[in-house]
Design a protein around this nucleic acid. Structure first.
Length: 114
DNA sequence: AGTCTGACACCCG
DNA sequence: ACGGGTGCCAGAC
């Protein structure tokens, strides 16, 4: 714990508006660690249970929830649906429409890795 | 303390 | 188009 990386992730997650989502890679990128998408997930893993953050708004770059097999199943998907996020039958959502970028963030991924 | 794994993403073959 | 390997940071063993 206690890393600028993690702090950035949490801050970003906390700012995700209802009905919007962000990807792990995006969080990692904005947190200052492009390519560390995996760790974004790891951070969530340790905090989801004890943190009151909208962790369910964090999905993978495929527009698919990654925790569908965790806990009650599609809990994350259900939470998002309750917020107005539309999932298709394959469990995917439209990132182009639902992906949220913080204020002043270039909508175009300037990533060196992406 | 060291090592492996992990809820992803990208490059290469 | 598909599969495998590597990178990143933070936890768990």
């Amino acid at each position: 714990m206690q890393g600028a990386f993690q702090a950035g992730i949490l801050a970003l997650v906390a700012r995700i508006p209802a009905g919007r989502v962000m990807t792990y890679g995006q969080l990692a990128l904005l947190a200052g660690a492009p390519g560390a998408a995996r760790q974004a997930g790891q951070v969530m893993n340790g905090l989801t249970a004890e943190t009151a953050l909208p962790w369910h708004r964090v999905i993978n770059a495929q527009g698919r929830v990654s925790t569908y097999k965790v806990g009650t199943g599609d809990l994350q998907e259900q939470l998002l649906r309750a917020e107005g996020v539309a999932f298709d039958e394959t469990g995917r959502c439209d990132l182009a429409t639902l992906q949220w970028w913080p204020e002043g963030t270039p909508a175009a991924p300037p990533d060196p890795l992406f």
